[in-house]
Design a protein around this nucleic acid. Structure first.
Length: 592
RNA sequence: GGGGCGGUAGCUCAAUUGGUUAGAGUCCCGGCCUGUCGAGCCGGUGGUUGCGGGUUCGAGUCCCGUCCGCCUCGCCA
C-alpha cells in the first residue's frame, strides 16, 4: 500500500516514485491549480504538492477536498523542493509531486488537533477523552517509542544475563498488608474474591524457591490508592529477582542496567552510582530520595540552638530525638520575599513541622524573622553555616525525622522557586541501610519500612525482638534526580526469620498461616538466598522524556478519580452479571 | 476523607460594580489566490455559560448544593 513512510524521504530519493499513507496534518490551498498537503504518520511528515499541470482534474479536486486528519494515500514523484527547504522537517529538502490521491477515511471536524505546539494549550481532559487523536502528536509517538525501546533494552540486558521471563498471575489471593487491593469477585466460589496484584512479590520469591535462579517480567501492578501527578493506580514495573546473590552483586547488575538505559536511550553516562545510608540521606538532604542536583544541605544546629532562649527551639530539643536543622539559601535575601517565606512556611507545616523559623544575613549580622532570639549565638551560627551577607537561613525544629523531612520539602520548594536546580545534571544514587520497621502511632504497632519479606542485616538479627526500631534492613532504593525509580532488597529465605518478622508486624501464627501459609511452606522446602529489585517503568520513561506528569507516559491513563475518560470506565454491569456473581449493591437491596 | 484552583462555541480564551442580542481566535462550511509550510484574504455555521436550586427588576458574574478535571495532604507494605 505504501513504498515509504512519511518520515523517510531524503534528497537521495529524488527521481523515485513514492506512495505514502497517513493523516492529513495540514492543507494549504493556493487556488484551483495548486494545493499543498502535509501527510503525517508515526515516523514524520512529508509535503505533497498537487499541481494542475501534473495531474488530472479529478485528482486535483480530491486533493483540494482534503481536511485535517483525513486518512489518505498519495503517490507521486520525489523531487527537490521548488519553494525552498523547510528546516523544521526532516523531510524538508524534498516534496512529493502528487499524481494520484486516494481517501481511506474522512475525519469529522476533529475535536482536538495533534499539533505539538498545541499540546499545552489543550485541556488534558479533552486529550484523554480523544486519546486516539492525542496519541498521534509527535511527542506522544516519541513517548510510545521510548517505552518500547526501554522494554526491548530491558529484555536484551537481562536475557544476556540468563534471566528468565516468567508470567505471574493477575488473579491472586488478597493479602492486604500494604496498599488497598483491587478485588475481583469469584463466580465459581460466590462470596469469595480474588485480588489484583500490587506486585508479583511473592510469586517471584516462590520462583526462586522453584529453582528459576534469575527471573524478570515487565508487568502491571495495581494498587487501589488515590493517584497523583507521578502515580497511577495501575502502573508498570520491571520486576527482577535473583538467587545466590548478596546485595553487592544485585546492585552491581542493576547499576549496569540503569547506566545502559541512559547511555543507549539518551547518550548519557550516569557514571558510578554512589551509595548513601538512609540515615545520611535524611540527615543531610531531608529525604530518603534526595535530589542531589543542587546543594542547600541540612546542617544540625541543635547544640547552638540549645544555648538560645527561643522557646520554640527549646521545646523541640526537649523532645525525644529532638533537633534543630538549618539550610542556608545563598544570595536570596531580596528574592525570598515575605510572601514567599509564608508560602514556604505552609510547605513546612504541611509536612509536619510547626513552622519555619527564618532569618536573613546582612552586613550587620542576622536581621528579620527570629534574629533577636539568636543574637547571642550569632558568631557560632555564622561559623557553622558559613553565612554570607544576602543569605537566608531557614530552620526546622522537631523530632529528628520530622524536622529533617519537613525542611527537606522546604529545600525542594525553595530550589524550584529560586531556580537553583541544575536541570542539565543527572544525579543517581543508591539509598541503602533503611530501617527495617517504622512505628505507627496510628495503629500502635510496627510497620515494614519496605515490605514484610525484606531481610534484616545478619548483624541485626539478634535485635529483632529486643529493639526493632534499630534493626537495619537489607533493602535499597535507586534514586535519580530526586525520583525513586526502583527499589528492592535481599529477601528472607529462612522460614523461622520470616515468622519472627511477621510476629513483630503483629501477625499471629494463625493469621500467618491464613495469609502467607504457602510462602512459609515454600520456604521450608529448600529456599535459596535471594533478592531482587522492581523498577518503575513509568517513572523511568518520565525521566527519559523529561515530563513530570505520569499520564504523559501512559498510552491510556486514568484520571485522579480513577476514570478512563475515553471508555468511561468504571461503568455499570448488567444485573444478570451481578446475579451470576451473587452480588447485590446496597442501594438496590434497599430499593427492593 | 481534608485543602486549593478550575469548568463560557468542537478546541483555546474574553465578557467592567450584577445590566442591551454572551464576543474573539482556531477547527469546520463556502468563496478567492500557482510556491505555501503554525500560509494569506473575504464570508458563514456554531452557545440550556457543567448540572440543580436560591437571591434579584435583571445572574456567565453573587449564595447553596452537586458532578467533572487538575494540584496537594492523608494514603501509596
Amino acid at each position: 500500500m505504501r513504498t515509504h513512510t512519511c518520515g523517510e524521504l531524503r534528497p537521495e530519493h529524488v527521481g523515485a516514485e513514492a506512495t505514502l499513507c497517513g493523516w492529513v496534518n495540514t492543507f494549504r490551498d493556493q487556488g484551483k491549480a495548486l494545493v499543498f498537503i502535509d501527510i503525517r504518520d508515526r515516523t514524520g511528515m512529508t509535503q505533497a504538492v498537487f499541481d494542475q499541470e501534473d495531474c488530472d482534474e479529478e485528482v486535483m479536486k480530491m486533493a483540494r477536498s482534503l481536511r485535517r486528519e483525513d486518512v489518505v494515500q498519495v503517490e507521486g514523484l520525489v523531487e527537490l523542493r521548488e519553494g525552498g527547504i523547510n528546516k523544521k522537517l526532516d523531510t524538508g529538502m524534498i516534496e512529493v509531486r502528487g499524481s494520484g490521491v486516494r481517501v481511506f477515511s474522512r475525519a469529522n471536524n476533529p475535536p482536538i488537533l495533534p499539533d505539538d505546539h498545541e499540546t499545552t494549550k489543550i485541556s488534558e481532559e479533552a486529550r484523554l477523552k480523544h486519546r486516539y487523536i492525542d496519541l498521534r502528536r509527535p511527542s506522544m509517538q516519541r513517548m510510545l517509542q521510548m517505552r518500547h525501546d526501554l522494554a526491548m533494552l530491558t529484555r536484551e540486558y537481562f536475557h544476556a544475563l540468563s534471566f528468565l521471563e516468567v508470567e505471574t498471575p493477575l488473579l491472586i489471593k488478597s493479602t492486604p498488608e500494604g496498599a488497598r487491593d483491587f478485588v475481583v469477585p469469584s463466580r465459581i466460589y460466590p462470596g469469595k474474591w480474588y485480588a489484583l496484584p500490587q506486585s508479583p512479590q511473592i510469586f517471584k520469591q516462590i520462583l526462586m524457591v522453584a529453582g528459576c535462579d534469575r527471573y524478570m517480567q515487565i508487568c502491571k501492578c495495581l494498587r487501589d490508592e488515590d493517584p497523583r501527578a507521578d502515580r497511577q493506580a495501575e502502573f508498570t514495573q520491571i520486576d527482577l529477582e535473583m538467587s545466590f546473590v548478596d546485595r553487592d552483586e544485585i546492585l552491581r547488575i542493576m547499576t549496569g542496567f540503569v547506566r545502559r538505559i541512559f547511555k543507549h536511550l539518551l547518550g548519557l553516562d550516569l557514571g558510578t552510582i554512589p551509595r548513601m545510608p538512609w540515615r545520611e540521606a535524611i540527615d543531610a538532604w531531608g529525604s530518603d530520595r534526595p535530589d542531589m542536583r543542587f546543594g542547600l544541605n541540612l546542617v544540625d544546629i541543635s547544640e547552638i540552638a540549645g544555648q538560645t532562649d527561643f522557646k520554640v527551639f527549646n521545646a523541640a530539643l526537649a523532645k525525644k530525638d529532638g533537633v534543630v536543622k538549618a539550610i542556608r539559601i545563598p544570595a536570596s535575601a531580596d528574592r525570598l520575599t515575605r510572601k514567599k517565606l509564608d508560602m514556604l512556611q505552609e510547605t513546612a507545616k504541611t509536612h509536619g513541622a510547626g513552622g519555619l523559623p527564618w532569618t536573613k544575613v546582612t552586613d550587620q549580622g542576622f536581621e528579620g524573622g527570629i534574629a533577636k532570639f539568636i543574637d547571642g549565638v550569632a558568631d557560632e551560627l555564622s561559623a557553622v553555616l558559613q553565612v554570607e551577607p544576602g543569605d537566608t537561613i531557614l530552620m526546622a525544629c522537631d523530632s529528628w525525622l520530622t524536622a529533617c523531612e519537613s525542611l527537606g520539602q522546604v529545600r525542594l520548594h525553595v530550589a524550584r522557586e529560586l531556580d537553583l536546580v541544575d536541570t542539565t545534571a543527572w544525579k543517581a544514587l543508591w539509598v541503602v541501610d533503611f530501617p527495617m520497621f517504622r512505628w505507627s502511632e496510628d495503629k500502635q504497632r510496627w510497620l515494614s519500612e519496605h515490605h514484610p519479606f525484606t531481610a534484616p542485616l545478619d548483624a541485626d538479627l539478634e535485635k529483632l525482638e529486643t529493639d526493632p526500631g534499630s534493626v537495619v534492613s537489607a533493602g535499597y532504593d535507586i534514586v535519580l534526580n530526586g525520583s525513586e525509580i526502583g527499589g528492592g532488597s535481599i529477601r528472607i529465605h529462612d522460614p523461622e526469620v520470616q515468622q519472627r518478622v511477621f510476629k513483630i508486624l503483629g501477625l499471629g501464627n494463625a493469621e500467618q498461616r491464613t495469609k502467607f501459609g504457602f510462602l512459609l511452606d515454600a520456604l521450608q522446602q529448600g529456599a535459596p538466598p535471594h533478592g531482587g529489585v522492581a523498577f518503575g517503568l513509568d517513572r523511568l520513561v518520565m525521566l527519559l522524556t523529561s515530563t513530570d506528569n505520569i499520564r504523559d507516559v501512559i498510552a491510556f491513563p486514568k484520571t485522579q478519580n480513577g476514570a478512563d475518560l475515553m471508555t468511561e470506565a468504571p461503568g455499570p454491569v448488567d444485573d444478570a452479571q451481578l446475579d451470576e456473581l451473587q452480588i447485590r449493591c446496597l442501594e438496590k437491596v434497599a430499593a427492593e
